[in-house]
Design a protein around this nucleic acid. Sequence first.
DNA 1: GGCATTCTCTGACCTTAGTCAACGATCTGT
DNA 2: ACAGATCGTTGACTAAGGTCAGAGAATGCC
Lengths: 291, 291
Amino acid sequence: MPAEDPTTATLRRFNRTYTQRIGALDESFLGTGRPLGISRVLYEIGPQGAAVRDLRDRLGLDAGYLSRVLARLEEDGLVAVRPDPADRRRRLAVPTEAGRAAWQDLEARSERLARRLVAPLTARQRDRLTQALATADLLVRAATVHLREVPPTDPAARAAADRYIAELDRRFPRGFALDGPDTEGTFVVATSDGEPVALGGLRDAPEAGPDVGELKRMWVHPEWRGAGLGSRMLRHLEAMAATRGHRRLLLDTNGTLTEAIAMYDRAGYRRIDRYNDNPYAELFFSKDLDV
Amino acid sequence: MPAEDPTTATLRRFNRTYTQRIGALDESFLGTGRPLGISRVLYEIGPQGAAVRDLRDRLGLDAGYLSRVLARLEEDGLVAVRPDPADRRRRLAVPTEAGRAAWQDLEARSERLARRLVAPLTARQRDRLTQALATADLLVRAATVHLREVPPTDPAARAAADRYIAELDRRFPRGFALDGPDTEGTFVVATSDGEPVALGGLRDAPEAGPDVGELKRMWVHPEWRGAGLGSRMLRHLEAMAATRGHRRLLLDTNGTLTEAIAMYDRAGYRRIDRYNDNPYAELFFSKDLDV
DNA sequence: GGCATTCTCTGACCTTAGTCAACGATCTGT
DNA sequence: ACAGATCGTTGACTAAGGTCAGAGAATGCC
């Protein structure tokens, strides 16, 4: 084993503290007269309801087991399970009035326990704790984001591209619009709990040379900025480009996107002259990939 | 329910992230061919061994259940349980050679999982995560510290007082020594996992007035400083003094203890003239309690 | 239109984790 | 030396949580 890593040591120490002290937050689900597993499923269904499929994914449960838990919740009159009209193999679990009340109760218990935990802290320390946990939350979530390569038609890629376009439209003085959805190149979507949180596209740019690629649609969900998702996406795209035989990457961007520009600078991209007639682009970058 | 509290909201959000992602650290104990509970006990016993009593406290297990788990570990040749020579009611669990190897394996699994979790982060982000988790760890531990009032003879109070004395002896240019152990007044010991982490003493000071008390032996474990334990101790002592009928508190301290002095200032203590002949004291404070 | 796949449910089965009370051995204070 | 407390073990019992294979209904894909 290599020399002790301070990050894993801290993480593991925190894990111990956590399971001993905050872990009790789960136990707030006890004492409701229902077993923990049942409460967890009820809580996960939430006041709006959820698809059985999603519950299974989110909670990591066996299909048979979950089915039984749902039957029990239905029997207790807390949840109604009915087929999804859009795909009648699927089923949706929707809380009844009583179910929503039980959910509220779980919510209140959890909140109470959290309060009791932080009660001994002064306001200043509470702020520090909030800060620290929010940072840790963002980084841990960012670290467990899932990157996958998809065609331009992928629904997650489309959804992310739409958000990208909407954001540029908001930020650019004269708005932003595209002719139609992307059809060219390959996209990389980063998802967390199924939600797209970052996007990046790579296309061949034969007009600029035989082994040149171009990056497009680089976008990170606003709530996820500052966690290094952008540079991770960039590294992933560069590795992808290298395996596709590209030796140089181009990209263009707008002067208002200062965070992105700083990231490109940090990642070793150099500013070059205009190489296309994109009316929204003001800055142009290039990077040589050392294959 | 009052307006949403950002601390509990962050804590609860983090709790979700945590159970879904880091929580898997526990699951690293699975896949060893042993059930989770057994592995947890084995891990807690550690390479040095542990008293059965302590295991029960640390893991919060039922005596009967733990007894059976230990029997199973003994049967598997991983642990030897033998009576504690010092008190033959107690028993000690000591790992065998195979047990130490199994413990190493658990350790390695946990480390591997922690590494995999932080692997996607850059060095900079890893530093930020380490920082954030260390802060959160300290604050959460500080929040769950247990304060209790004890007589001067209490072993935890004695242990903390000894550390206090040793530290002053190290920090004062001409050292520090006492005639004998404290016998007067009431102590408040803060413990975490059974370890004393902070100390404070309160005595009547009739020589200074009928309703005057004096604080003594204020000490916070060096690793626990900056988490507000000192001011929490102070508040506890003040409340205690108020119920004892004191309306004014005195304390003395040495100029080298700058953190403590800053804390007294913050807590509303005012500097006064020397009120005793303590040769180690250079600064003197007083605070009126509003009862 | 037919075949493979997806989604959920059901039955059969099992381990794990835990509780509770009774009991014997041992220690502590007086 | 003895009453009372502490420590751990044992027997009897239970709920919780989970696995696995098979089946039926619905859908997607060519």
